[in-house]
């Protein structure tokens, strides 16, 4: 989710945090009021739930192990890093998961709390960076998700290290992001931001994009085996996401933390 790793103002800035970019924070602060408008500026993120939630659910749980069919993720603890207004955290909680939503932006976390209260969804929202969060939450989660976040993170190495540290052994880390290719640059910045305005201007910087191999290499360093890399595709005309064979524009990946 765009905007997750942002800080609101000097009071809240984790001065030692190397993963958070102040400019990003200012950009995403603009969306505090619009976060939950299904057809607003962030509609691609809402639409993405339709593929990423079933993906996460099916990766974590198989039908025959399910205790309660109406709450398939019951008993799973999940950390949603860079949760923003909670577009992914709330549905995860609704399917039974015990979700912690993490975002450095206090404004966003506050608006996420208000929304969750209003809709009677139980999500534990925390305004913090993932490096701080791991201090008290080492190896606590069954799954860590950073969806549409890593393309806004400056220091990917530190960021992924902290994410993996939050994960229990055998737990899964889920990432969705933008590839560092000319096709991605053309599609997500030149076209989506500047021509068809499907994404607000200034959301992405090409330098911060990462290829699946880069992320895979970092994850390997922290004892994670990449299980899946799969391309995704956004159709801005119908506002729908699809799985696509080609990961050259946007992709989703899942890695498993190995036992020591």
């Amino acid at each position: 989710m765009a905007g997750k790793t942002l800080i609101k103002n000097i009071k809240n800035v984790r001065l030692h945090s190397s993963t958070i970019d102040n400019k990003e924070m200012l950009h995403f602060k603009k969306f505090v009021d619009q976060w939950w408008d299904e057809f607003g500026e962030l509609k691609p993120l809402h639409a993405m739930n339709k593929i990423r939630l079933p993906w996460i659910r099916e990766s974590l749980v198989t039908c025959n192990k399910m205790e309660d069919p109406s709450l398939p993720l019951k008993g799973y603890t999940i950390l949603d890093v860079g949760c923003g207004g909670g577009i992914l955290s709330e549905p995860l909680a609704k399917v039974g998961a015990n979700v912690t939503g993490l975002d450095a932006n206090v404004d966003l976390i506050n608006s996420a709390k208000v929304h969750a209260n209003l809709h009677k969804v139980n999500v534990n929202y925390v305004a913090s960076s993932v490096e701080d969060h791991v201090q008290d939450n080492f190896e606590k989660y069954d799954a860590v998700i950073a969806s549409e976040v890593i393309e806004h993170v400056t220091n990917k190495q530190e960021f992924l290290k902290a994410c993996v540290q939050c994960l229990k052994p055998k737990g899964s880390i889920f990432l969705t992001t933008i590839n560092k290719t000319w096709q991605a640059n053309l599609a997500t910045i030149s076209l989506a931001e500047n021509v068809i305005n499907a994404i607000p201007k200034g959301t992405h910087q090409y330098e911060k994009f990462a290829t699946p191999h880069e992320l895979q290499r970092i994850l390997e360093e922290y004892n994670c085996r990449t299980e899946v890399v799969h391309g995704t595709m956004y159709n801005f005309l119908t506002n729908t996401w699809h799985w696509w064979f080609n990961p050259s524009i946007t992709y989703a990946m899942r890695a498993v933390k190995l036992d020591k």
């Binding site: 299904e38 809402h46 339709k50 079933p54 659910r57």
Partner: peptide, 11 residues
């Protein structure tokens, strides 16, 4: 329901 969406969700 399985995607944690609200029942009235247009998509």
């Amino acid at each position: 329901i399985y995607a944690g969406s609200s029942l009235g969700n247009v998509s």
